[in-house]
Structure formats: structure tokens, C-alpha cells
């Protein structure tokens, strides 16, 4: 897994609540047997009209917005457990998703792929969305070490929560698999004992 320390980047606003994994990556694209290439189908049915033409109104098709941070409405990533949703976001180039609320399974999947979910207060989220609509070039900084998200232009800063273990994993590029394999003997001992 790639390490994550800090990120200074522009952001893309998607102020919709309850964005489910079927929107992030529709089921018909889940037939692949590898992890790559899902980015092109990210938000497929919002990016395209039904006849396949581009929906110019959708934010990912709007040239004004760029960036590796996605700022989305509450309850992001609800629905299915498909990790393809995290793969699609990463493959598209996102490194951070900011929302006021994340669905549990999505949060875990994101962290397992080095995609950082930053949970902020609803007020902070709304200020961020408003800021982006006024200045799409606005820079957002995310500092994992300090667990701080800052928007200098808005003079705003907020601390976010992350489990210390998960934080360490991201900072060092170490994942759950590495850890679990390292304690295999303990696991076998548990099996013996029960």
C-alpha cells in the first residue's frame, strides 16, 4: 500500500447525500477479475446520459473543477460492500474523500487502499462546499500526522478522527494483511485453545 502523509490539493464538490456504491460503480462493471481500470466507470451513470453522451452538468465533466479530493454529502459509500468503489475512486485519482458521515464498510475498504476518508462536521462540510462553489481553485490541505484538514483561504481548520492503528498503517504504508500474517502464530494458538 502507498504511504499517506500530507496532501495539498484542489477538490471536487459533490453535495449529494447518501451516495451509494451502486452510483460510485454500477454493478454491471463488476465482472472484472482484477483491480485496475475501474476509474473510467466511476459515477458512470451520473457522468453520462442514457444514450452514452457526456452529461456536461455533472461535476466530473466540468472543467472548472479538478483535484484529488472529493467532497461529498453525508452517508457517503452506503450500500454494497464492493471494494470496487474504493478502487474506482483511487483509479480515478482521488486520494481523500471528505464527508460528514461515512458508511462503515466503505470506510474500511478505503483505508485498506490508502484512500483517506476524512470525516468533518456538517458545518465544516457546508463551508467547504460553499467555498468551492465560490473559488473552485481553492486549495485544501490534509495532514494525517496532525489529523488536521485546513482551508487557508477560508481560514478554516478542523481536526478529524482516525484510529491510531489505521493512522500508523497509512503513514507507514503497512496494511492489515501484513499485520495479520505477522501474528499467524497467535491465531493458530487461539484455534488450539478453543
Amino acid at each position: 500500500m502507498e504511504k499517506f502523509k500530507t496532501l495539498e490539493a484542489r477538490a471536487i464538490p459533490l453535495p449529494v447525500e447518501n451516495i451509494d456504491t451502486d452510483q460510485i460503480i454500477p454493478a454491471r462493471f463488476l465482472k472484472a477479475t482484477d483491480r485496475i481500470g475501474f476509474g473510467k466507470n466511476l459515477f458512470k451513470d451520473w457522468r453520462h446520459y442514457k444514450d452514452g453522451s457526456l452529461n456536461d452538468e455533472f461535476v466530473l465533466n466540468n472543467d472548472v473543477f479538478h483535484g484529488s479530493i472529493l467532497v461529498a454529502g453525508s452517508n457517503f459509500g452506503c450500500g454494497s460492500s464492493r471494494e470496487h468503489a474504493a478502487w474506482a475512486l483511487c483509479d480515478y485519482g482521488f486520494k481523500v474523500v471528505v464527508s460528514s458521515f461515512f458508511a462503515d464498510i466503505f470506510k474500511g475498504n478505503a483505508l485498506n487502499n490508502g484512500l483517506l476518508p476524512v470525516q468533518v462536521s456538517e458545518d465544516f462540510l457546508q463551508a467547504l462546499l460553499k467555498g468551492l462553489s465560490e473559488d473552485p481553485k481553492m486549495i485544501i490541505s490534509v495532514n494525517l500526522e496532525q489529523q488536521l484538514i485546513t482551508v487557508a483561504r477560508l481560514n478554516l481548520s478542523e481536526k478529524f478522527e482516525i484510529n491510531p492503528y489505521k493512522k500508523l498503517c497509512l503513514l507507514s504504508g503497512y496494511d492489515d494483511m501484513d499485520y495479520l500474517v505477522s501474528i499467524l502464530d497467535d491465531i493458530k494458538e487461539y484455534e488450539e485453545k478453543r
Binding site: 483491480r35 454494497s80 460492500s81 464492493r82 471494494e83 470496487h84 474504493a86 464498510i105 474500511g108 475498504n109 485498506n112 487502499n113 496494511d175 492489515d176 494483511m177 495479520l180 500474517v181 501474528i183 499467524l184 491465531i187 484455534e191
Partner: peptide
Amino acid sequence: GIGTSQVAQVFATQS
């Protein structure tokens, strides 16, 4: 439910 990374972890460590 778990994600695919965890599916791999359970394969490898049953945990």
C-alpha cells in the same frame, strides 16, 4: 460483509 482486501486476509489468516 467485508471488502475484497479483507476476503484475502481471511483466506490467509482466518481473521
